[in-house]
Design a protein around this nucleic acid. Structure first.
Length: 351
DNA sequence: CCCGCGGTATTTCATCTGTT
DNA sequence: AACAGATGAAATACCGCGGG
């Protein structure tokens, strides 16, 4: 009867070979620390005995590192993997981690706190994506952990941003310049203090700029409206809580189904998803784009550029964002805040 | 309270080479 | 013969935590 076979360890192998554990460790991790002949002997014996190499858990116990970088997402994992903007961002992060021998741990701030904190403890660094800073969360992360914030500021840590206000000014300015639009309207993304899918009324309190990036987008729109002699306070505004077709559609329908005289002739949308939803639903209603309704988006996702009419929008390079954040975490890039450029894309939905 | 899990980083030691 | 480096390998300390 054989006793239940315990997994063979580095120690067993060392004893078997009559060398020290350190030498076996070096055979696997630092070939320059021992002679090629001895290394061959060790690796050969390891293979023969079925030793697969140093155990990852024990290694990180000793080194204090795991080669795992965690991305903490504001949204659910499902949304983040499906949404064009955030999946492109994640892809950029993954690309850098891949080449640097690191792996990716995806966490959502929507998970139960204790679960999130447990998983977080194994990461070497954190990229916090689009997340409103909550002290409660940051206090629970490992002390002295390196952290890079994306789209938000986290006190004491570098961040990666895009120029939301100027780019929204630029595109709204363009939209208002090409042709006189009498009834502009704004479609917000998650900008009210209390969740709201629909018309934003004066009772609604808007989130302050430090709580959401869309507030900066709104400021850009407002500045352009004022420049064109419009009272921005009078411009009707709708709000959408989640950047998916299913959540956008009812709000957009509410706008498009207004009587002709009230229906906006220009929609300043804070995302391409919003603009594309409007495009789809407007076409279904026989509205001509851009003659009856002019649309602008934000993000520059592929879906908006590989269809006709092409969306007029602001392209942000989400992949670059991810690559930069990852490089900063790994120390391949100086750890100071960066502002990435965006680009105005002149499509066919606004001219 | 302290040991031991399975490893690694760092320091120390023992030999080997080459030079005067 | 005496000794300085160079080199390969071993000794040592330590990681956080659960169980005796």
């Amino acid at each position: 009867m054989s006793s239940p076979a315990r997994r063979i360890t580095l120690k067993d192998l060392a004893r078997e070979l009559g060398v020290s554990t350190a030498t076996v460790s070096n055979a696997f991790n630092r070939p320059d620390q021992l002679s090629p002949a001895l290394r061959e002997r060790i690796l050969g014996e390891a293979k023969r005995l079925g030793y697969r190499g140093p155990d990852a858990k024990a290694r990180s116990l000793r080194t204090g590192r795991s080669r795992i970088i965690a991305v903490i997402l504001a949204e659910s994992l499902t949304y983040s993997l499906n949404d064009a903007v955030s999946s492109e961002f994640l892809s950029g992060v993954a690309e850098v981690l891949d080449t640097q021998g690191h792996t990716l741990l995806l966490l959502s701030a929507r998970q139960a706190k204790c679960q999130l904190v447990d998983s977080a403890s194994m990461a070497d660094g954190f990229i916090v994506y689009g997340l409103m800073p909550s002290d409660e969360l940051f206090d629970s992360l490992p002390l002295n952990a390196s952290l890079v914030a994306v789209d938000f500021n986290v006190a004491g840590h570098p961040s990666v941003h895009i120029d939301n206000e100027p780019s929204c000014f630029e595109i709204a300015d363009h939209a208002l310049s090409v042709k006189s639009r009498k009834r502009p309207a704004i479609v917000n993304l998650r900008l009210t203090e209390t969740p709201c899918n629909g018309r934003v009324t004066p009772e609604h309190i808007l989130l302050p700029p430090e709580r959401t990036i869309t507030r900066a987008r709104l400021s850009g729109f407002y500045r352009a409206l004022e420049k064109h002699g419009l009272d921005s306070e009078q411009v009707p505004m709708w709000n959408v809580e989640e950047n998916t077709f299913d959540v956008c559609a009812p709000v957009i329908e509410e706008i498009l189904d207004l009587p002709d005289a009230e229906r906006p002739d220009l929609l300043l949308c804070m995302s391409d998803r919003l603009a594309l939803t409007a495009l789809t639903l407007a076409e279904q209603r026989g509205l001509r784009i851009p003659d009856d309704l002019c649309l602008i988006g934000f993000d520059g996702i592929a879906e908006g550029q590989y269809r006709a009419p092409r969306l007029t929008t602001i392209r942000q390079e989400s992949g670059d964002k991810g690559r930069l954040a990852a490089r900063m975490i790994l120390g391949l890039e100086p750890r100071h805040s960066r502002l990435l450029k965006t680009e105005l894309i002149l499509g066919e939905t606004c001219h």
